[in-house]
Design a protein around this nucleic acid. Structure first.
Lengths: 222, 222
DNA sequence: GAACTTAGAAAGTGACTTGTCACTTTCTAA
DNA sequence: TTAGAAAGTGACAAGTCACTTTCTAAGTTC
């Protein structure tokens, strides 16, 4: 398979076997973050230990704590690293949707598929864990705002007409749709029920269509 | 030898200080389950240890493992115990809503309040943890079906007209609304954003009103 | 009230947990 | 070339984990 991705080569090594300190540092950090997310995905938050992460990263215990003073710092950094990467994927996926056809349904389905990704389920675990972990909550609070903003921006680009027509209300509808799918995804983590989800997505699509095409004064007049 | 008078050798049950084995057993079991839920609420799933549970229950480690062969069994039993109790609370809350006024908005608000309860947030942690814990997932699968069924039943009683008019479609709308609120609640665990939630609930109310009062053929005709 | 059963307490067990520390390797700058 | 800084190693400390074993006390049965 030809690898035609746009990721620049970014020479990890400078020709010969030598690497600058900066390169060595960055490589180890990257390995640790990737291993952290991988572990979270495979074993879940509760079973993510520093030892396991170092094993997967192929790095010593000492190296981990040289880069991150505590386990919480590692998890926070992993979250900070994960979210922008997810956003890039979202954007790509939405831009790949054809101009023609049922764009509302396509958007809902795409969003659902996104929430089925293991990395996103790992992100959900982080959110849940943050309830009882202040340090993690602080990081997520920082990370969440730009994330939400970009999701809204993607939605506006995807539905430019409705976005313009509805103004700020559009954002709230987007938020609501995202949260709906998030909630459904959460439910299906433990108890997958494909037919039920399918029905839910159908109704969500129908309601979203009403919200987008229909009354801009959805909430006025009581 | 001081204290000989006050610290009597515990007169071995004055009269009906006696409890049957069944009573003793049930009391310990109850204490363990309550302590488990309490710990989950306060410390989160990841920090819920058998040691902490026994401490809170005022019981020995041995006692815990006499009642529950593994930690997972304890957590499963806690979930099994929690869900019916939650349901009873739901029913009570919905029945307390006055007949007059905006019942749609009342239902949405009530559901939101319910999802703010610590016990429910503990339940969310269980669902998330179940992704990487088969034993827990099995218990939740069993527990989830009757739970969902009763939620739908409560909704049908709350909106009898719409329920009758829409038939099976009603259930899907209910599922969707519950999942929406669940998703919003999940998001606000780590990042509370009251104004955003308020807006979301407003739109959810508006859409739900459309779904309930409006077209029964919401999903037909594409 | 002796024999028996069951519930629970007390005190382990070994396998992990996060985080540290003395030390080595690798790179940088003079 | 070489001193020193930065990055990485891996054994280890100190404590916690889920779970067991051993024993005692409480309740039941005859």
């Amino acid at each position: 398979m030809p690898n035609t991705t746009t990721s620049s080569p970014a020479p990890a090594t400078t020709g010969n076997g030598r690497r600058t300190q900066e390169e060595r540092k960055a490589a180890t950090r990257r390995a640790l973050l990737d291993a952290t997310i991988e572990t979270m995905v495979e074993l879940g938050y509760a079973n993510t230990t520093t030892t396991e992460v170092t094993k997967r990263a192929g790095v010593s215990q000492g190296a981990l704590f040289k880069h991150f003073p505590t386990k919480a710092a590692l998890l926070g950094a992993a979250a900070e690293d994960l979210f922008p990467r997810l956003r890039a994927e979202y954007r790509e996926a939405f831009e790949a949707v054809p101009e023609t056809g049922d764009r509302v349904r396509a958007a809902v389905d795409l969003l659902w598929d996104i929430f089925q990704k293991p990395e996103l389920q790992a992100a959900i675990e982080l959110y849940v864990a943050a309830r009882t972990d202040e340090e993690l909550a602080a990081v997520l609070t920082e990370v969440d705002a730009p994330h939400r903003a970009e999701l809204r921006a993607i939605a506006r680009e995807f539905f430019p007409l409705a976005a313009e027509r509805q103004g700020e209300a559009f954002d709230s509808v987007v938020d609501l749709v995202i949260d709906s799918i998030q909630g459904a995804a959460l439910g299906s983590l433990a108890v997958p029920d494909a037919p039920r989800r399918e029905r839910e997505l159908t109704y969500l699509t129908a309601l979203l269509r009403l919200a987008l095409e229909g009354a801009a004064d959805l909430t006025t007049g009581e």
